[in-house]
Design a binder for these strands. Structure first.
Length: 464
RNA sequence: GUCCCCAUCGUCUAGAGGCCUAGGACACCUCCCUUUCACGGAGGCGACCGGGGUUCGAAUCCCCGUGGGGACGCCA
């Protein structure tokens, strides 16, 4: 049987880091087994679903390069299928109408909680041999409930957590269609996973508790039960649960914050999954290596520092033209236009070795295209009156030479010797004059890229 | 409250009874490289939640604690 996995987000917000990892693992599993990966939008909560959220999810997946073979399917467009199944379950007696009002259910829940019991539907309208059902109230539109088995256990071999077993007595008859006739989540999932021929359901472990209900429905429908793999959650950098209020951000925020998608992908792949000592790998390798039995069942804490380390790696590895495009657009946000000279690719070749963030990289190279902001502190510390004669003399020499890093280096060495100084004594003030700060790559290389005219002009500003 | 899940360095993890005086990676520290800051290189620090079993032998298996998390909606 060919493998078919799916990612089934509900469009009530952006694609966050946990969702992205779930999608990544489902995607990789399908790729590994030459199967299909399906995207399904679970938008049956009309109140909270928005088209913007759908777009945000699509954008996030696109940025990460998680392409799908089928979909996106929208559950709201599949109502006919669900209604047909509900009718057939009603016909077969595996589902029934319940006329309890919301208030009645609420009261039931409360009293059970007070008695220290697990809140559950009491089966008031559940048809049973020899049982007389109450009189049907006229003013209450009924919901449809699934007739869950009351004895025995539901068990499955979870691909991540191992065997999980839950007594049917713990479960109640869940609502599969609301009073207005629309189907509910657990039911739609069952129908879709069945109808779409999903073979492995890979999802967050907050769904473990839904699984036994879904299996029971699948069995009532006579459907093949897929395999389940429940991924543990991702905690924030501080070990706390991610929530809207606390640290949960869109994957697109990582783009915004200067991360390269390869780094995010590699990082996410290693969160909860491992392949021996492998830390850095391509998505192609990941798809070859990926399997469900090397996933940790315990929750993982997000670590930005390790992401930064991977980001540095992928910035070094990136295609220089792609990198230049990205940095050019980030420069634009800083109101800096990357001119033709010096070529941004050349500048980045010099700078990317030291960067671990794209925004930082953009800020670092901005001075090639705009006058740097110099701090008074750096000026006071490095551009001292004592050094000015040497700088002045160097400036005159530089005007004479053939502009190249080697020649610049020689020129600096010459004044260093002439004035009996150490190299940094001259290099540091140059850095500040040219780049605005006291840290930069080799000053001769920086100057070579900046160009003779521009370099000399910036030095002149300090000579009076 | 009830049910379910989880538990190795600060963090991500390797580990499927002897290969473990517990390995790798990030972070941290030291040194080297050096034209500053980085990069890079070499070292270092640092963990099996506790208690009982089982076994010749347990990080690995079992039980009990403890701690953490999740689920209990006409939300998904």
């Amino acid at each position: 049987m060919t493998v078919r996995t799916r990612f089934a987000p509900s469009p009530t917000g952006f694609l966050h880091i946990g969702g992205a990892r779930t999608a990544l693992f489902s995607w990789a599993y399908a790729k590994k087994h030459h199967g299909q990966f399906i995207l399904r939008i679970e938008d049956t909560d009309v109140e909270r679903s928005t088209p913007e959220a759908v777009q945000a999810i699509l954008d996030g997946m696109h940025w990460l390069g998680l392409d799908y073979d089928e979909g996106p399917y929208y559950q709201m467009q599949r109502m006919d299928i669900y209604k047909k199944v509900i009718q057939s379950m009603l016909d077969h007696g595996t589902a029934y109408y319940c006329y309890c009002s919301k208030e009645e259910l609420e009261a039931l829940r409360e009293s059970q909680m007070q008695q220290g019991l697990k809140p559950r539907y009491d089966g008031k309208w559940r048809p049973e041999a020899g049982k007389t059902l109450p009189a049907i109230p006229q003013d209450i539109p009924p919901v449809v409930r699934f007739k869950n088995p009351q004895t025995g256990v539901v068990a499955w071999g979870d691909l991540v957590k191992g065997r999980i077993e839950i007594a049917n007595a713990e479960l109640d008859d869940l609502i599969i269609a609301r009073a207005d006739g629309t189907p509910t989540y657990n039911f739609c999932v069952v129908v879709d996973d069945w109808e779409m021929g999903i073979t492995q359901v890979i999802r967050g472990d907050d769904h473990v508790n839904n699984t036994p209900r879904q299996i029971n429905m699948l069995q009532a429908l006579g459907a093949t039960v897929p395999q389940y793999a429940h991924l543990s959650m991702i905690l924030g950098d501080d070990g706390q649960k991610l929530s809207k209020r606390h640290g949960a951000v869109s994957v697109m925020q990582y783009h915004e914050d200067g991360y390269i998608p390869e780094a995010v992908l590699n990082y996410l792949a290693r969160l909860g999954w491992s392949h021996g000592d492998a830390e850095i790998f391509t998505m192609q390798q990941f798809c070859e290596w990926f399997d469900l039995d090397h996933i940790t069942p315990s929750a993982a804490q997000f670590n930005t520092e390790k992401l930064n380390w991977l980001n540095a790696h992928y910035i070094k590895e990136a295609n220089i033209d792609v990198l230049a495009d990205d940095i050019a657009s980030r420069l634009k946000k800083l109101d800096v236009v990357a001119q033709a000279q010096p070529k941004l690719q050349d500048v980045l070749a010099l700078y990317r070795e030291r960067a671990n963030n794209l925004n930082q990289l953009a800020r670092d190279v901005a001075y090639f295209y705009t006058l740097p902001q110099v701090s008074a502190e750096d000026v006071a510390k490095h551009i001292t009156p004592e050094i000015m004669p040497a700088v002045q003399s160097l400036s005159q020499n530089l005007a004479q030479i053939n502009w190249s890093a080697e020649a610049i280096h020689e020129a600096i060495n010459a004044v260093v010797t002439q004035y009996q100084l150490k190299f940094p004594k001259v290099a540091m003030p140059l850095r500040v004059m040219l780049t605005g700060i006291a840290q930069s790559p080799s000053i001769d290389q920086v100057m070579a890229l900046l160009g003779q005219k521009e370099a000399l002009s910036r030095i002149q500003n300090y000579i009076r």
